[in-house]
């Protein structure tokens, strides 16, 4: 019994660190959806590009962890802005299905451009931390897990501050709620959308670097599965809702860790997508979503 409980807490630690990476990616999904109602299927690939930025920053430029993650976030933000400008903005008034297909196209474009540019071989992410193992009673956590947790926490607090307390954040919320009314306030929608892509992409890139640090291996197709998982996390929390994405990511990570720990790791993807099916069946608006929110 004791070992069962111990294993439970151990998997909880693993799950929360994995989940905070899902949460970072899910935030971008949810913000972009909130503002232009697009499921940006290329978002997982931004995460992959972020990981490569981090990789080159540490191996070629010899940067440490913090400058590398900042550089990677800035680089991915620019890539995000360019993608929106080139691929999505011309489709702004096109039917939703057309822009969704565009997003899938962008996703393939990024994946296979990267295969061409950096080769399909997985790269070994350098160890930027001396792997220390911390013991908390019978439980263990390594330094990577702590770094992931702390970085994700800092980024989420920063994002919440930007969205809730700055003028730019208010403009974002206004555009996402009612674009026409926002324009009548003098808000430049195109700029707000660019900013949303920049923020979302930067968070995904941070997730990519953290995963590189955690698993030590990156490759051009690494974004596919986490991209889908983060999408599940965003839907689970309620797509378009920022705290929902954080919550959804953590829950998904914990469920996956528990399934891996207590059943078998081959079931963990099934569990993630099982959650998607269940949530769509029983609470399609997501855990934090409300079906009615406006009194007219």
């Amino acid at each position: 019994m004791d070992t069962l409980l111990q294993q439970f807490f151990q998997q909880l630690i693993n799950g929360i660190s994995l989940g905070s990476i899902y949460a970072l990616i899910a935030l971008g999904y949810t913000m972009i959806y909130g503002i232009i109602k697009l499921i940006n299927f290329a978002h997982g690939d931004i995460y992959m590009i972020g990981a490569y930025f981090g990789f080159f920053a540490t191996t070629q430029l010899g940067l440490g962890f913090i400058p590398a993650i900042i550089l990677s976030m800035a680089g991915a933000a620019i890539v995000g802005i360019i993608i929106e400008r080139v691929a999505y903005r011309p489709m702004r008034n096109a039917p939703r299905i057309a822009i969704l297909i565009t997003a899938i196209g962008v996703s393939f474009f990024l994946e296979y451009s990267m295969i061409l540019l950096v080769s399909p071989q997985p790269r070994t992410f350098p160890a930027v931390f001396t792997p220390t193992v911390y013991h908390f009673g019978p439980l263990v956590a390594n330094s990577q897990q702590l770094v992931i947790l702390i970085s994700a926490l800092i980024l989420m607090v920063a994002l919440s501050y930007i969205v809730n307390s700055t003028k730019a954040g208010k403009a974002m919320r206004a555009v996402s709620f009612d674009a026409d009314a926002a324009r009548l306030m003098g808000i430049n929608i195109d700029r707000v959308i660019s900013m949303t892509f920049a923020l979302g992409s930067a968070l995904a890139a941070a997730g990519g670097v953290l995963v590189g640090v955690y698993y030590n291996s990156i490759d051009p197709l690494m974004g596919m599965m986490p991209g889908l998982k983060a999408f599940v996390a965003a839907v689970l929390g309620g797509i378009g809702i920022i705290p929902g994405a954080m919550m959804g990511g953590i829950i998904l990570g914990v469920v996956e860790a528990m399934v891996s720990g207590f059943l078998s790791s081959t079931f963990r993807d099934a569990a993630a997508f099982g959650i998607l099916i269940l949530i769509l069946l029983y609470k399609p608006a997501g855990l934090l979503g409300k079906n009615v929110r406006e009194k007219v």
């Binding site: 208010k170 919320r173 206004a174 709620f177 009314a181 929110r293 007219v296």
Partner: peptide, 8 residues
């Protein structure tokens, strides 16, 4: 139809 930002 006013279009106030109802979530704020």
């Amino acid at each position: 139809g006013r279009h106030v930002f109802a979530n704020m």
